[in-house]
Design a protein around this nucleic acid. Sequence first.
DNA 1: TATATTTATTTGACATATCAAATAAATAAT
DNA 2: ATTATTTATTTGATATGTCAAATAAATATA
Lengths: 147, 147
Amino acid sequence: MKFETPTSTVLYSIEETIKAYRRLCQQNISSIVPTITVDQALILIIIDREDKSQSEIADLVFKDYASMTRIIKLMINKNYLTKTIDDADKRKSELKITASGKEIIEKLNPVIKKNRETALNSLSEQELKQLFEILNKITQNCKSNSK
Amino acid sequence: MKFETPTSTVLYSIEETIKAYRRLCQQNISSIVPTITVDQALILIIIDREDKSQSEIADLVFKDYASMTRIIKLMINKNYLTKTIDDADKRKSELKITASGKEIIEKLNPVIKKNRETALNSLSEQELKQLFEILNKITQNCKSNSK
DNA sequence: TATATTTATTTGACATATCAAATAAATAAT
DNA sequence: ATTATTTATTTGATATGTCAAATAAATATA
């Protein structure tokens, strides 16, 4: 870590890792459900498990609200989701998985499990814990200094 | 790590970290050079240090060649860069930093240094090494299983 | 109650990611 | 030398990221 060229930093490695992981995921997901993206798959699963509004989901998956609006729109067009106005608070939207959305989730579950196993193969529990903690420190450092 | 909901995995944490870091970087970079993006700044610095072709640079910064074409074009429009055809191999392009590009690099260097320090604040050398190694394992796992 | 402020979502503009197909030049094979 | 293949880059189409501004509904305040 002596010669800090841009390509020798840990943060550069984080980018590399996340890109490699996303590529792996997209390839395996596409082989089962060719029409869905990694982001859409994650969001679909979250909506299925958590009964939350659009912006709450966005916060959960670290998406901008603008991005969320568009991703949701695409998923509605593909008939994975329905969206209705929340009666109690008409600003909010209610998102529900359609039958074909459910089917897709069922198909994807094993793929997603396998992707994680592939990526984390041969990592010990201790390594995972360390990784988790170190990443958390970095995240906190960044957040407390940005906004 | 027992209940593997999508939001409890390490890979999810990696996404969180990289987004927090990119936000920190963009904010600090914008405060000094409002017209440049994080990606453009990194690419500018790499081009300045390494005399490589467009696709070699792309490989270095994990960018798709298509993205690189567009990023380069934007940077040329902003007069950070010039691009000429390589005489020895007319398929290749030669990228050179302009005077104003150089100025920007000078301005950015301390910001980039500070961003890294902020993000990695209070992390020991050992933690950095661990992080680096664990990320590398994950990257290799993903790459060997995707292509 | 009327007005001001906050909250949830959307839209516009621009930057980047990704895949597939197209170009054009260089190199290999016939 | 001609043809086939490979390599470097570009273009098109679509998805997502990010910021700022706009809407519309809910809540707070005067």
